[in-house]
Every structure is written in structure tokens, then in C-alpha cells.
């Protein structure tokens, strides 16, 4: 199939860049480092006296909650502290130690690393179109017997495949190192989350898998966004800058507009899908997982339509 040759060309180009190997190696090294560090500094006294520790934490939390209510911080700050407080209480009552580290707990703790991967994916997606315009290589590619949309689609498919690849690497590395250092198993460890103001106890493996699945959807939308920016701008560094700014400033922006009624229709509050796994982390109210998935689908379609329409018509003067 000829289209697949286009995709494999893009794939080869991605993997011929030194930075790609850094993107692959860095998460693995970080996971390994954290696993080793955690194992070395494992505090057995805290582990055995966890009840004391948690009780102390709750005392602190209570003060913080009172303070948050007094000084007029946004409502969700107090709410999330309260949730933490309730979870701690529940843990004490049911005798579920939050200090028990298993491979799955380790995977959960490593989840924030996915935003680092998000950054890498933005770099690749931003460069894959804009970079070829900047270097002028795009014209060598567009004079081939392929309609423009096929060339662009091949780049999109290659970027998504690369995002998926990075994500698999992260999942595999966290599971492997977690298992090596904290033992295989631990899938049935209980995990506490808040749903509708009540504490729910579920399996940590269930939580981790759901978390990873949702994160990959976030990844995909990030790719669509960066890909659009990449197509609209001629310079890859400008494209990378804009995409990074949108992604990170977007989250800050959410705080500003969180009280507005239209906030839930904007992109960024919907970009954080894992918020639905733990209620109380929600900044903008009135959204649900199906709602957010729907909004993301609409935004993604919009991004792709703009990307392909612009690319199809553009005069290449590079």
C-alpha cells in the first residue's frame, strides 16, 4: 500500500532525529530513578505507624480548610482539601494504608509523567509540518504523486502512532520498574475516590487503567491541536511555542474563567479527563465524562477541518 509508505517515511524521519531518542530515554530514566529513590528512602517507621501519620495529616488539613474558607480562596480549594480529609478518615476506619506501595500504586504515582510526554508529543507534532516548511523539504515531498491530504494524513497518522508508542513505553516502564522494586501483583489494592460526595472504594488497577486510557485521549487531542498550529505556522519553533503556551496557559486560564457559565464549553476544562476519576478535582462545574468526550470530539473535528483545509489550499513558496 502506497499510503503506508508515506506513513513509514514519516516514522523513519521521526526516529532519525536525536531528540526522539531523548524523548524515549528520558521517561524511562526518570521512572527508574524515582523507583530506586523511593525504594532506598522507604521509611519503614512511617509504614508501620501510618495511622499516626494520617491522623497528624488530618489535623493539618482541618486548619488549612478553615483558612481557605476564611481568606476567600476559590471554592474548589477548600473542597479538594475536604475530600482529602474525608478519604483519610475513611482509610483510618477501614484500615487501608496509603503508604503501601505496590507496582500499581507506583504506576498511579507516575501518572503525572504523562504531561512530560505531552510536551514531547507537542514538539514532534509541531515540527512535522512546520519544520518541513521551514527547511523547504516540504516541496520535495509535495511534488510526489500524492494528493496533499494524503501527505498530511500520513503525518498525522505517524504522529499519533508516535504518541501511542511513547505512551506504551511509559506504561511498560512504570509497570516493569514498579514490579521489579515493589513486587509483582498489587492489582487488588483498594483505591479511594470521591464520587458524588461519597467515598468509593475501587481496585487500584481499575483506576490506573482508566487513568491511562483517558490520558491517551488527552494526548490525541493535544496532537490535533499542535498539528493544526504546525500547519498554520511556517516556523517549527513558533509552532512549538504556541502549542506549549496554549496547553499550559490553557490550564491557568481555566482558573480565571471557572465561574463563567460558558467555561464548560471551552477546550481546556474538558482536556483534563482524569478529573472524573476523582471528583473534587473539578474546577469547572456542570461537566461529566460523556460531556467532555463530546466537546473534545467537536474540538478535534474543528482542528482537523481547519488543518486539512488550510494545507490543501496553501501555495508553497518555501
Amino acid at each position: 500500500m502506497k499510503f503506508l509508505s508515506l506513513v513509514s517515511n514519516e516514522w523513519i524521519k521521526i526516529f532519525s532525529r536525536t531528540r526522539t531518542w531523548v524523548f524515549i530515554a528520558l521517561p524511562i530514566l526518570i521512572v527508574l530513578g524515582v523507583a530506586i529513590y523511593g525504594k532506598v528512602n522507604e521509611d519503614d517507621t512511617v509504614k508501620s505507624n501510618w495511622k499516626q501519620e494520617v491522623t497528624q495529616q488530618n489535623k493539618d488539613l482541618k486548619n488549612q480548610i478553615a483558612e481557605a474558607k476564611k481568606d476567600g480562596s476559590p471554592k474548589f480549594v477548600a473542597e479538594s482539601l475536604e475530600n482529602e480529609y474525608k478519604q483519610n478518615q475513611y482509610a483510618l476506619k477501614k484500615d487501608i494504608s496509603p503508604y503501601e506501595t505496590t507496582s500499581w500504586k507506583f504506576m498511579k504515582d507516575m501518572a503525572p509523567l504523562s504531561s512530560l510526554l505531552g510536551l514531547f508529543v507537542i514538539v514532534v507534532a509541531s515540527d512535522i509540518v512546520a519544520g518541513e516548511f521551514a527547511k523547504g523539504t516540504i516541496k520535495m515531498l509535495l511534488i510526489r504523486p500524492y494528493s496533499r491530504w494524503k501527505v498530511l494524513l500520513s503525518k498525522l497518522v505517524a504522529t499519533l502512532a508516535f504518541a501511542f508508542f511513547l505512551w506504551v513505553i511509559l506504561v511498560a516502564a512504570t509497570w516493569l520498574f514498579g514490579s521489579i522494586f515493589y513486587g509483582f501483583g498489587g492489582m487488588d489494592q483498594p483505591y479511594l475516590s470521591m464520587v458524588d460526595g461519597k467515598i468509593h472504594e475501587k481496585l487500584i488497577s481499575e483506576y490506573v487503567l482508566a487513568n491511562m486510557g483517558l490520558e491517551f485521549i488527552e494526548f490525541a487531542v493535544t496532537v490535533f491541536l499542535a498539528f493544526m498550529v504546525s500547519t498554520l505556522f511556517y516556523s517549527s519553533s513558533v509552532a512549538i511555542g504556541i502549542s506549549l503556551f496554549l496547553t499550559f496557559a490553557g490550564n491557568a486560564l481555566v482558573l480565571f474563567i471557572s465561574s463563567k457559565s460558558w467555561a464548560k464549553y471551552t477546550l481546556f476544562p474538558n482536556m483534563d479527563l482524569t478529573q472524573y476519576l476523582d471528583e473534587g478535582l473539578q474546577v469547572v462545574k456542570g461537566m461529566s465524562l460523556p460531556f467532555s468526550l463530546g466537546m473534545l470530539a467537536i474540538y478535534s473535528a474543528l482542528f482537523l477541518i481547519i488543518t486539512f483545509a488550510v494545507f490543501q489550499k496553501r501555495d508553497v513558496k518555501a
Binding site: K13, S16, K135, G136, T137, K139, M140, I143, R144, P145
Partner: peptide, 21 residues
């Protein structure tokens, strides 16, 4: 378009190649 382009080989201005390959 595709059928026509199959028959063409071209250099447009400087041939910019992937310099990392």
C-alpha cells in the same frame, strides 16, 4: 493530479534534502 505527477521529476529552486538523513 496524481497520474500527472507520476511522470514528473523535479528540482524546484535549491533541492532541500533532509540533512539529518
Amino acid at each position: 493530479y496524481e497520474k500527472a505527477m507520476e511522470q514528473i521529476g523535479a528540482i524546484v529552486e535549491n533541492p532541500q534534502m533532509y540533512d539529518y538523513l
